[in-house]
Each structure stands twice: as structure tokens, then as C-alpha cells.
């Protein structure tokens, strides 16, 4: 295995074009365990972290730009970001331990294409976009278009994500992310649920986005649950409808982390809880943190 740490995007694109046997990485927190278990054995490792744009986190007038290889601790420790996107910040902060946090990236979390990746539902409900470097310049797609199946993405060989853009939320909007794991930390979501809720001045929901992790091959938007909220206040009834729609939207598997029945049921529970928390944040009445 050879190692290369390009300092420009062009250099990285060139290196990837030079061999079909290459692999980009950021924190390597997914990649190294996979190499250790014998699954890819790349000939060339391309470290993206020495490219400034890939590790920068910057606040613009209307949006944030997050380098695809920036460590997630840089997000959770960014007070302005965490205030505007508490759910996304918490989701990123749930990835592994402090040790992992100092390495793990949103780009890696997304491109590893695990259905259980914690930051992905939170990015999707916030409408995040991925800026992709290609041999012919860059292209932009929405985050929900990246993962196509467990372990697979829509990126072509030689492409990589440079950064994510996420628009600042409108007024009276809150996001949240909750997951179920048997342990409090160091665990992979059995079910994850992200939501972003916008309320009008009367407390009726004007916009809702709900996405579930670990209950289908890729992160799943629950449009039925969103529809059940639009135009209504957040009440026990609407939350029950959200829960039912979320459970119905699941297409999970039985595996060592959970069963189909469990995942469906808990997806409903978490969807209800996460919507409630996001709505409280939208209304400015949230008292508790979502994380942990």
C-alpha cells in the first residue's frame, strides 16, 4: 500500500486517475477496520486531510460549508454551528468516542454508505448538498442521492466529496436526531431518526422532514409522516400518526443488532420523539438535549 497526501483537489483528482486501485480517506475510522478484516486492499491510499478546503468549516451569509474530511469534533465544538443545527451537531457527535470524533468526517460517514450512519439522516433533513470533485471539475448533488445501497455510492471511480453545503434554517425551525443503541456510547444505531420541523406563529407545522437510519438499505425519508404533520400542531394525535407512518416506512433486516419487528416498532417511537424535540426547538421551548 502506498500513501499520498495531496494538498490540492487537482492533485488528488490526478492521483486517483492514475490508478484504478486507489482509495480516498479522511479519518480512516471505517477504512482501517475494513482493511484489517481483508475487505478492500487498495494499492494507493489518498489522504484528503491536507487539502485545506476539505477540512474547513465556514459560515456564510445564508449557508455553512463543511469540508468533507473535517473531523466531526470540529462541528460539535463549533458553537455557532451547533446552535443553528443542534440535531446535525448531535448526530455528528454520536459517532464513536472522543478518539473517533477527532478523526471521523461527514464525508466518510456518508461514503462508507452504512444504513446506520448517524450524520446522514440529520444531513438529509437539513437538505445538505454534496460538492463532488470529478476529473472535469465539480458537480453538486443532494446528500440523499449519494448512498445507493449498503457499501455503495453513486460516486464514479476517481470522484470524491469536497464539501457539504447546508442552508441556514428558516425562522421557527428546529432539527434533532435520536438513535437507539444498547450501549450509551461506542455503538452502532439499531434505529436512528432525524427530523427538521418548521412551525408557524400559531404552532402549526409548515414544513417537516423526517428521515430514518438503519431500517432500510439506505437512509429513508418518511414522507407519509411529514404529510401527517403539515398544517397541524404537534399533538399526541399527530405524533401517533408520525409513529405509525415511520414504522410502516421501514424495510429493515434481522441482524445481530436487532430484529425486523424491533426496528419497526422503535422507528415509530424515535420518529415521534425526534419530531417532538425538533418542534420544541422550533418553538424555542426545548429543554433537553437530544444526544445520549
Amino acid at each position: 500500500m502506498d500513501y499520498l497526501a495531496p494538498i490540492t483537489i487537482e492533485e488528488a483528482v490526478g492521483a486517483l486517475a492514475s490508478t484504478s486501485d486507489s482509495r480516498v480517506f479522511a479519518g480512516a475510522t471505517d477504512l482501517i477496520p475494513q482493511i484489517r478484516s481483508g475487505r478492500p486492499e487498495p494499492g494507493l491510499l489518498v489522504d484528503l486531510k491536507r487539502i485545506d478546503r476539505l477540512t474547513a468549516v465556514t459560515e456564510g451569509d445564508t449557508s455553512w460549508t463543511i469540508g468533507a474530511a473535517a473531523p466531526t469534533s470540529g462541528l460539535t465544538e463549533n458553537i455557532a454551528f451547533s446552535r443553528q443545527f443542534p440535531g446535525l451537531s448531535e448526530a455528528a457527535g454520536l459517532i464513536g468516542s472522543d478518539q473517533i470524533q477527532n478523526r471521523s468526517s461527514l464525508g466518510g460517514n456518508l461514503c462508507n454508505a452504512s444504513p446506520a450512519a448517524d450524520s446522514v439522516p440529520a444531513m438529509i433533513v437539513n437538505g445538505a448538498r454534496a460538492i463532488i470533485a470529478t476529473p472535469d471539475g465539480t458537480r453538486t448533488i443532494t446528500v440523499d442521492q449519494v448512498a445507493t445501497a449498503p457499501g455503495h455510492t453513486s460516486l464514479e471511480p476517481g470522484e470524491f466529496i469536497v464539501e457539504f453545503e447546508v442552508d441556514k434554517p428558516p425562522a421557527r425551525t428546529g432539527d434533532a436526531y435520536l438513535r437507539m443503541t444498547p450501549r450509551t456510547e461506542m455503538d452502532i444505531a439499531v434505529v436512528g431518526a432525524g427530523a427538521r420541523i418548521t412551525l408557524d406563529a400559531d404552532g402549526n407545522c409548515t414544513e417537516a422532514r423526517i428521515a430514518l437510519g438503519a431500517v432500510a438499505p439506505t437512509v429513508r425519508r418518511v414522507t407519509d409522516a411529514e404529510a401527517a404533520l403539515i398544517g397541524h400542531p404537534i399533538t399526541d394525535d399527530t405524533l401517533s400518526a408520525v409513529a405509525a407512518a415511520a414504522s410502516a416506512a421501514c424495510d429493515p433486516i434481522d441482524d445481530k443488532r436487532g430484529t425486523i419487528a424491533y426496528r419497526k416498532q422503535v422507528a415509530g417511537v424515535l420518529a415521534k420523539r425526534v419530531v417532538k424535540l425538533a418542534a420544541e426547538r422550533a418553538a424555542g421551548t426545548a429543554t433537553e438535549n437530544g444526544a445520549h
Binding site: P71, D98, R103
Partner: peptide, 15 residues
């Protein structure tokens, strides 16, 4: 590493 806690097993040496 640069004052941040990390797992040495998850870092490629040349990094």
C-alpha cells in the same frame, strides 16, 4: 496527536 485524543490503531503511520 496535535493535542487531540486519537486511536493510534486508526491512523496510517505516514499521516
Amino acid at each position: 496527536m496535535d493535542d487531540r485524543i486519537t486511536c493510534a490503531c486508526l491512523i496510517f503511520a505516514p499521516e
